[in-house]
């Protein structure tokens, strides 16, 4: 169990983490999602006591990180794959970590075996590929058999086989009753692994919800109907007990009814249809819309093409997604 309370971190003018309050619960995979530069890594460093918070605090099973007796037994963290001395062998890297936490030497070989690095255990990590480095980082995280695991972008640099492996590993660890906290900037990745979802943007909490709830709210499927006879269609729908939402462009968005049923209904009432199309908002789109206002680095100036699918997304989108296409925010860093 990790509890954040009003966690704030300011780097000079820039507010990297802005009063975050949420909990990471055991027995499930909690996804920590946000665009690049949203403050995910800073939040994780604050959790581990590497950065000092400007305000607020983090407790791990009720304790501050620096008060943990054998921290590797509580939390295993994969921060960045490169957090190691390249001249030291994989075995010795893990050995020095084990020794500082009274972990038996045999466990080192065990975790190396677990991540599939036993063949290169005695090799200096200088020559390791990104994927091997990631596996070594995961081995270090698992070293103390901790109750909480924290992974910062774990699938980075892994091949498909490795990605598959880490997904299953995270699920298995959570099923054993551990707390698994994993950050990513990829919604699609989270959709496959996470049970709970914490979304941040520009250091602020945007959503703290279960994955199922997020999907229910955001990947709404509906049928778009366009007609030159809107009055007649509305009456016909009303008569059939179907509620329709009028979209900004004058078309109707109808959920809970199949396109076939709507087509039949229109034919019955001799209403001309110009469009009858089932729509599905993808999670990726929902996430992008949710965080659009808070994206730190925009790739281009031109506004993105008209939203392909549903524009009314989750409730928070109204608050955070408003005027998201407007450019030229001040450079004050505070955002507005």
């Amino acid at each position: 169990m990790i509890e954040l309370h009003g966690l704030t971190k300011r780097f000079g003018e820039k507010l990297a983490v802005d009063s975050l309050t949420f909990s990471v619960r055991p027995g499930m995979v909690t996804g920590f999602l946000g665009p690049n530069g949203a403050g995910k890594s800073t939040t994780m460093r604050l959790m581990l006591g590497l950065d000092r918070p400007t305000a607020g605090d983090v407790r791990i099973d009720g304790k501050h990180y620096q008060d943990l007796d054998e921290p590797l037994r509580y939390i295993g963290a994969l921060l960045e794959a490169q957090a190691r001395h390249p001249g030291r062998s994989a075995y010795n890297h893990l050995l020095c970590l084990a020794q500082s936490n009274r972990i038996p030497r045999a466990r080192v070989a065990e975790v190396l075996d677990l991540v599939g690095l036993q063949a290169v255990a005695k090799k200096r990590t200088k020559g390791f590929s990104l994927g091997m480095g990631q596996r070594l980082g995961i081995a270090a995280a698992l070293l103390g058999d901790p109750t909480i695991l924290m992974f910062d972008e774990p699938v980075n640099g892994l091949d498909p086989e490795g990605i598959h492996w880490i997904r299953n590993l995270m699920k298995r660890l959570a099923a054993e009753g551990r707390t698994v906290f994993v950050s990513s900037h990829l919604m699609s990745e989270m959709a496959l692994t996470a049970d709970h979802l914490v979304v941040i943007g520009k250091g602020k909490l945007l959503a703290d919800t279960t994955m199922a709830e997020f999907i229910r709210q955001n990947s709404r499927s509906f049928v778009r109907v366009r007609t030159p006879q809107p009055e007649q269609l509305r009456d016909a729908l009303h008569g059939a007990g179907i509620t329709a939402v009028t979209a900004a462009d004058g078309s109707y968005e109808i959920s809970g009814v199949t396109a076939a049923r709507l087509g039949d209904l229109a034919a019955q009432h001799r209403i001309v249809l110009h469009e009858l199309s089932p729509q599905q908002a993808s999670l990726e789109e929902a996430f992008m819309q949710l965080t659009a206002e808070t994206v730190e680095y925009h790739a281009h100036e031109t506004p993105p093409p008209e939203p392909v699918a549903a524009e009314p997304v989750a409730e928070p989108a109204g608050a955070w997604g408003e005027n998201w296409q407007q450019r030229g925010r001040g450079r004050s860093g505070e955002g507005g």
């Binding site: 027995g27 509580y74 972990i103």
Partner: peptide, 28 residues
Amino acid sequence: YQAYASPIPVQSTGLGHALRSEWTKIRT
């Protein structure tokens, strides 16, 4: 949500453990 419990008991660590760790680091 039964919390996971490691079979190895947790004890407090001290300077001795840090010294062993640093010795491994410097010689490797």
